[in-house]
Nucleic acid binder design. Structure first.
Lengths: 258, 258
DNA sequence: ACAAAAGTGTTCGATCTACACCCATGT
DNA sequence: ACATGGGTGTAGATCGAACACTTTTGT
């Protein structure tokens, strides 16, 4: 959505290119140096923050649409993306404070009651995780703001997006030991401390530093390398990598050691 | 869908009452005496079998629509119903062998290309389990056949419904120890043998008879009663019930002992 | 007494948890 | 040598699988 013409076309005739009544929303988690953040956006004429989302093209597979969505906001492609739930109660998208005039000013089009965007819409929830320091946030003609928020300090969200975030977090945490989450969140080679911090942050709780590596290695997700990294005035830690083969299997099979 | 007028109205103007482009499909598993079956239906003018499904009324919550669907087919209300995945790839509903003339004979309406039923539709998958001996299968003006099939001997299914069944089975089996599945599948009071047979059948594998009760009791799902049941020429087994309070918690919390 | 089914231990090993301990490194 | 963070080891508890054993019941 680059120009105002794009927007007008989308509002008036978007249902030709996109399937109406169905959208997707992405809970994109961002990790970096022991901080867990969530990407939120704002739409024109709406006060509050929302999960980034959008409609699905008639030619697209579901996962492709989710990927496109994530890429449009963050610049990052081919992230690990996983469906967690679909939302569709009739009152889920009730707008509390839609400012018609502000919308008109922004878009140049009045939203009439018969517009395809007004009708009830189901939303398929996806979640993803990326390294927020490597993203390149992009707004849009229809997306006013786009920013990372600390997961423990989220603003009030519009629609049913707070429930979505709860469900997304829960699913992500359950799947953390079973899917190749975290693959893109660490450098190619990393230390145990780094992955330990990552898992603690994602799970939001302490993990015993001694038992933690045993578990991951037992699961076969980690490979110990023969290299060390110098970190200054302390003992040099060994480096590890993810066992890519195992991870690819996991993606196909769905689960590592089910 | 009782009369031909209903059907005509539905085909021509259904999108007024129902949300177009979105449907749901239910994998309804049926259990009875160590048999696991799946409910399948056929539509007019289509050779193959499908999962029962339908559209969602504009006034309905998602779970209510799923419930209505299950009740319309089986007569059973208020089953445990759980979403497992949403399907929406553009080619998922390609009809291989749609017989236009047969459809016209059945319904009295020709399906034109601009009909709301023809357009791309996303489907939200639900699964449920019931006791098939207590169901009362019902067909419809738009549902020609409706029958239980042995889970190990399913016919070829239309659309992407084979994938749906695979996913539904997988989700059900993962959730078996965490959700109050099976609550409606056994009599109020039952023996360990009965619930043991149930779990073996649902999981499709043998479970050690000795360790099995320990696990369920440890999870707190079972309560041992002070009664026995006489079963003839053998030792009388104790009776058990589900711990309803624990189960209700599980429904709210989502998980028993996460 | 017996067959058949119910129900209870008991052993062994794997896995988790908590914590104490040793190692490496630069100042 | 010591402070600091990296890494290993171990004792105890818990869990799970496998399998043998005892109990109950009607004939």
């Amino acid at each position: 959505m680059k120009t105002q013409e794009d927007v007008e076309e989308f509002i008036l005739h978007g249902h030709r290119e996109y399937v109406p009544h169905v959208s997707l929303d992405c809970a994109i988690f961002g990790y970096h140096e022991q901080q867990l953040k969530l990407l939120l956006i704002t739409y024109p004429a709406l006060d509050g923050w929302c999960l980034p989302g959008g409609y699905i093209k008639r030619t697209e597979k579901l996962i492709e649409a989710a990927n496109r969505n994530v890429k449009e906001r963050t610049g990052v492609d081919n992230l690990f993306l996983e469906q967690f739930k679909t939302f569709g109660d009739p009152d889920r998208a009730k707008l509390s404070n839609f400012d018609e005039d502000a919308w008109f000013k922004m878009t140049g089009v009045r939203l009439t009651d018969d517009n395809w965007l007004i009708d009830q819409t189901f939303s398929i929830g996806f979640y993803a995780i990326t390294d927020f320091s490597k993203t390149n946030l992009q707004t849009d003609y229809l997306i006013m703001k786009c920013a990372w928020f600390d997961i423990d300090n989220l603003p009030k969200l519009e629609f049913d997006h707070e429930e979505m975030v709860r469900e997304a977090l829960h699913t992500m945490r359950v799947q953390l030991y079973h899917y190749p989450i975290g693959y893109n969140l660490l450098p190619e080679k990393f230390t145990l401390s780094e992955i330990h911090a990552l898992y603690e942050t994602l799970l939001g709780k302490k993990l015993d530093i001694s038992n933690f590596p045993k578990k991951l290695i037992a699961l076969g997700l980690l490979k110990k390398l023969d290299e060390k990294r110098s970190i200054g005035a302390h003992r040099s830690p060994y480096l590890y990598t993810f066992d890519k083969e195992r991870y690819d299997e996991a993606l196909k099979e769905g689960v590592v050691l089910s």
